[in-house]
Design a binder for these strands. Structure first.
Length: 803
DNA sequence: AGCACGCCGACT
DNA sequence: GTCGGCGTGCTC
C-alpha cells in the first residue's frame, strides 16, 4: 500500500508537520512527490503538498488522498528541500515556505457549500426560502438570510442538508479558439457544391479550407474573410468544421520586437573578471563571486557572456534584478541577447502572466529567468549560474513571512547544483565586501567605466549657506543656473528627491500640532490632488482640516517637500521647461512607468523629476546633469545602515549622468555635506567608505562584525505588549550565552501600526549555536497567548529594515 | 484555520 | 429543559 506524506495548507504550529494518507489505486501511478493534492482534514477538505511517498505509517487508520491537482510536480525535489530549509531557518511554517516559492495562482481557494438532500416539501419555511428552489447554495448565504447556525446543524443531523467543502484552484489557462475542417477534402468539395446559393459567406469559408486545409485561429479566419461568427456557426453545427481550443501563454512581451544583439568584445578588465566565472562554470564548481564594478563599467555584459557560457553547456541561468530596476531597458538587454529563451518574472505582471512565465520555466521552454526576488525559486533542474545584480538592494530581503534573503537562497541552491553565484554591485553591502576580503567570496573588480568615460564631476552644496544667503527655495543657486544652462543647450536633467523622511506632513503653525494617523503613530501625508490626508501604513485617510483640531487656529498647512510641490515650483522658476514627474502617483497605472521613460528618452521633456524609482538602471545619452535635492534625508533614520544606504543611493544617482559621449555633472544638495557618506560618495571612493563605516560598525557592534536578530512583539494593549516584551527579553538573556547582547525592550521605531503597539528586542551575537532552539522555545512558551490572545511575535534573523 | 465537544449561565 | 456563549483539543 502506498502512502503519501503531506504538508497541509493550515499554517499553525500544531499542523506544521506531515500527515499520512493512503493513495487510492487510480492515483498510484500518477502521484509523485512535489505535487499538490486535496485531502480530507477533519470535516473539511484542504490542499496539501506531497513531500514523500512511502509504504508504511505509524498510524493504522488513514484516510485517502481525495484528488490530485497537478499532472507534473510543482515543486522539484530540490525545491522541496529548499522549502524545508527556508521554513526552519526563518522560523515559518512549511506550507508558507512552499506557497512563497510558487506563483500566486497555485494557491488554493476554499469554498463551503450547502447541499440539499431532502425533498423541498420536507423543508421548514425558513430553509425553503433560503434555498429558493436551488439544490446547492454558497455557505455564506446562511448569514445573509439570517438563518441561525443551529437550525443548519439540526438539519444536517437529520440528513436534510450536507455541508460540502470545495477546493478550487485559481489557476486558469488562457485559450484561443482555432477552426479546422472536420471533413476530408472530397466531402468538403461536395458540401461546397450543395450549399444553397444564398449562403455566400459559408461557401467562401469552405473554399478557404479547400485551399488551406488545417487549423487557423478563429479571429484570423474571420478577419481574412471579413465576416463574423454568424456565418461560421452553421458550418460548425453541421459538422463541416470544428473548433479546437489551444492553450496560449499570456506573454506580456509578445508584441514587442527586440533588437538582437551579439556579444560585445570585452575590455581587458571585463575579460579578467569573466575568466574566473567561466572557469567555475566549466569545472562545475560552486563559488560565490562579488563583482564590484562602478556604474557604467559593463557589468551587464559580463552577466550576458557568463550566461551564454552556461547555455552552451546546456544549463540554465537565474538573474535577479531589484524590482525597481526591472525596467524595459533591462529586459530588452536580456531579450535582445537570448530572445525567446528568456522568461521575465516581476510584480508588474498580472497573476495570469506570472503563472505563464513560470510555466515556461517548469516546462523547460526557457533557459534564462530574469526577475525580482522570488524568481530565485524558478524550478530549473540544471542550474548553471545565479546572478544577483545590485546585490546591496534591500528589496532582496522579504519583509514578511518567510523572511528570507534571496542571496542566501541563491547560495543554498548554487551549492546544490555546484554552480557559481555572481553578486554584482557598484556599492556592495559591507557584509559582502567583508566576506570578499576574508576570501569567503571571490572579489572581481571593474574599476573603470567603459569607453574610458570618467565619472561625472560632483559638487556638494551646503543648503544651510543657501538659507543664510536668503535662498529659501528647494534649489540652490548653483543647481538652478546649471538647469538653465542645460535647458538652453537642449540637454537633459534628472532631479532626484529622496522622499523617505521628507514626505509632506501637515502641521499647525500656531501650536505645532502635527496631523497623525489615529492608528499608527505616523504623520499623515498630504495628497494635493484629492486634498486628503493619507496614512502610508494602514491606508487610513481623512479630509484636510481647515482648522487645527488642537487649537482651532486656521494656520494649519502642509510642510515638507513632495515631488508634486517641487514640480510646481520648478515650473514657476523655469516656465519653458518640459517636466516629467515620476513617483507612485504618476506610475500607478500599468505601463505608465515605461511610457514616461520612453517619453524622456525621446527627448520630449527636459527634466525628469522623481523618487527612488529613477535612481537605477536609467541610461539616457542626453542626460548631462543630475541633481540630488536632499541627500541627507534618510541619514538620520533610526537604522544602522542609514550611512551605507545614503552612500549607495548617491553613487547610484550620480551614475545616471554622462554615460555616453557628453560629460556629466552632479549636484548634491544637503544640510550636512561634510558627513562621510556624502563626502566619500562625491569622490566615488568606495574603499574609503568601506573602511570608515567598518570602524563605526565595529564600535557599535553591528554587522558585519555581529549578527542581528530582531524580535518584534505587537498587541492592541500597550501595557501588555511592554510586559510580554520585558519577560521575553529576560527569558532570552537566560537562554543565550554570555557573549550575546540582548537589547530591549524598546518601542519599535514605528511604535504603533493599525492600532497595535509594537515593542522590540534586539540580539547581537557573534556565535550563538543555540539561537534557533531558544527561539523555538520562546514560541512554545507564548503559543497559547499567540493563539488565544491575538499576540504577535515576529522574528527576523538578519533584518534589513529596522522598523 | 475551522470545527466539535463540553461546560456554564440565561432564557422561553 | 434548551439556547448560545466561549475555552480546549484535534485534524492522518
Amino acid at each position: 500500500m502506498k502512502i503519501a506524506r503531506v504538508i497541509v495548507d493550515v499554517p499553525t504550529s500544531q499542523t506544521n508537520r506531515l500527515f499520512d494518507y493512503t493513495i487510492p489505486d487510480k492515483y498510484q501511478d500518477v502521484l509523485t512527490v512535489g505535487m499538490r493534492v486535496i485531502v480530507p482534514f477533519g470535516p473539511r477538505k484542504i490542499m496539501g503538498f506531497v513531500l514523500d511517498i512511502t509504504s508504511e505509517s505509524k498510524l493504522n487508520k488513514l484516510k485517502n488522498v481525495q484528488d490530485v491537482l497537478d499532472l507534473t510536480p510543482v515543486l522539484t525535489k530540490e525545491l522541496l528541500d529548499v522549502g524545508k530549509w527556508l521554513a526552519e531557518s526563518t522560523l515559518c511554517f512549511y506550507v508558507s515556505a512552499f506557497q512563497a516559492m510558487l506563483p500566486q495562482v497555485l494557491k488554493a481557494k476554499y469554498d463551503k457549500e450547502l447541499w440539499l438532500l431532502a425533498e423541498v416539501e420536507e423543508l421548514s419555511p425558513q430553509l425553503e426560502s433560503l434555498f429558493a428552489g436551488r439544490g446547492v447554495i454558497p455557505y455564506e448565504e446562511i448569514q445573509e438570510h439570517n438563518v441561525s447556525y443551529s437550525a443548519i446543524q439540526k438539519a444536517v443531523k437529520e440528513g436534510i442538508l450536507e455541508i460540502h467543502y470545495q477546493v478550487n484552484s485559481k489557476e486558469t489557462k488562457k485559450t484561443e479558439t482555432y477552426i479546422t475542417n472536420a471533413l476530408e477534402e472530397m466531402e468538403l468539395e461536395e458540401k461546397y457544391a450543395t450549399m444553397p446559393p444564398q449562403a455566400k459567406k459559408q461557401r467562401q469559408i469552405i473554399a478557404f479550407f479547400l485551399e488551406h486545409p488545417g487549423e487557423i485561429k478563429q479571429k484570423e479566419l474571420l478577419h481574412r474573410l471579413s465576416t463574423t461568427r454568424a456565418s461560421l456557426k452553421p458550418l460548425l453545427d453541421k459538422g463541416v468544421l470544428q473548433t479546437i481550443q489551444r492553450e496560449v501563454y499570456r506573454d506580456p512581451y509578445q508584441d514587442r520586437e527586440y533588437q538582437p544583439t551579439t556579444p560585445f568584445p570585452l575590455t581587458e578588465e571585463q575579460a579578467a573578471a569573466i575568466d574566473p566565472i567561466h572557469t567555475s562554470i566549466s569545472n562545475h564548481t560552486h563559488e560565490t563571486f562579488l563583482l564590484h564594478g562602478v556604474t557604467g563599467s559593463g557589468k551587464t555584459e559580463v552577466y550576458l557572456q557568463s550566461i551564454q557560457h552556461v547555455l552552451d553547456k546546456g544549463q540554465e541561468a537565474i538573474v535577479l534584478v531589484p524590482e525597481i530596476a526591472l525596467t524595459p531597458q533591462m529586459v530588452e538587454r536580456f531579450k535582445g541577447r537570448f530572445g525567446s529563451r528568456v522568461a521575465v518574472l516581476h510584480s508588474a505582471l498580472s497573476k495570469g502572466e506570472k503563472f505563464d512565465e513560470w510555466r515556461k520555466v517548469q516546462r523547460k521552454e526557457v533557459q534564462v529567468v530574469v526577475g525580482a526576488r522570488s524568481a530565485i525559486f524558478a524550478p530549473f533542474e540544471n542550474l548553471g549560474i545565479v546572478i544577483i545584480d545590485e546585490e546591496h538592494e534591500s528589496s532582496y530581503k522579504q519583509e514578511d513571512y518567510p523572511r528570507y534573503h534571496a542571496r542566501d537562497v541563491a547560495i543554498y541552491r548554487a551549492k546544490h547544483h555546484t554552480c557559481p553565484v555572481v553578486l554584482g554591485s557598484a556599492t556592495p553591502t559591507l557584509e559582502s565586501y567583508a566576506r570578499a576580503q576574508k576570501g569567503v567570496y571571490t572579489l572581481l573588480s571593474l574599476p573603470k567605466r567603459m569607453n574610458n568615460a570618467s565619472m561625472p564631476q560632483v559638487e556638494r552644496i551646503d543648503m544651510r549657506e543657501e538659507l543664510h544667503a536668503g535662498n529659501r527655495s528647494m534649489f540652490s543657486r548653483d543647481l538652478f543656473e546649471k538647469m538653465e544652462d542645460r535647458l538652453q543647450k537642449g540637454e537633459q536633467t534628472v532631479l532626484f528627491l529622496n522622499r523617505r523622511g521628507y514626505s509632506t506632513f501637515v502641521m499647525c503653525r500656531d501650536c505645532g500640532h502635527v496631523m497623525e494617523c489615529p492608528h499608527c503613530d505616523i504623520a499623515l501625508t498630504y495628497h494635493r490632488k484629492s486634498e486628503r490626508l493619507k496614512c502610508h501604513y494602514c491606508s487610513y485617510e481623512e479630509a484636510m482640516p481647515t482648522e487645527c483640531p488642537s487649537c482651532e487656529s486656521d494656520s494649519i498647512r502642509y510642510f515638507g517637500t513632495g515631488t508634486q510641490k517641487i514640480e510646481e515650483s520648478l515650473q514657476q522658476l523655469l516656465p519653458e521647461a518640459r517636466i516629467i514627474r515620476m513617483d507612485v502617483d504618476t506610475t500607478r497605472r500599468k505601463g505608465s512607468h515605461e511610457r514616461l521613460l520612453t517619453k524622456f528618452g525621446n527627448q520630449e521633456a527636459d527634466i525628469l523629476l522623481g523618487t527612488q524609482m529613477i535612481a537605477k538602471g536609467l541610461d539616457f545619452a542626453n542626460v548631462t546633469l543630475v541633481g540630488v535635492l536632499a541627500a541627507d534625508a534618510m541619514l538620520h533614520l533610526p537604522d544602522f545602515r542609514s550611512a551605507e544606504k545614503t552612500f549607495q543611493l548617491l553613487t547610484q544617482v550620480s551614475g545616471r549622468a554622462g554615460r555616453h559621449t557628453l560629460p556629466g555633472e552632479v549636484v548634491i544638495q544637503s544640510y550636512t555635506p561634510e558627513h562621510y557618506s556624502i563626502d566619500l560618495a562625491s569622490q566615488y571612493d568606495y574603499e574609503a567608505f568601506f573602511l570608515k563605516e567598518m570602524k563605526v560598525r565595529k564600535m557599535f557592534q553591528y554587522p558585519p562584525y555581529y549578527f542581528l536578530t530582531l524580535i518584534t512583539v505587537s498587541h492592541g494593549n500597550h501595557l501588555y505588549t511592554m510586559d510580554v516584551t520585558q519577560k521575553m527579553t529576560q527569558f532570552l538573556k537566560e537562554q543565550l550565552s554570555e557573549q550575546s547582547v540582548v537589547l530591549g525592550p524598546s518601542p519599535s521605531p514605528l511604535a504603533r501600526i493599525k492600532d497595535r503597539y509594537r515593542y522590540q528586542t534586539m540580539i547581537k551575537y557573534k556565535n550563538e549555536p543555540g539561537l534557533h532552539k531558544a527561539m523555538n522555545r520562546l514560541f512554545q512558551l507564548y503559543e497559547d497567548q499567540i493563539n488565544q490572545n491575538d499576540l504577535q511575535i515576529s522574528v527576523d534573523f538578519q533584518p534589513y529594515q529596522m522598523m
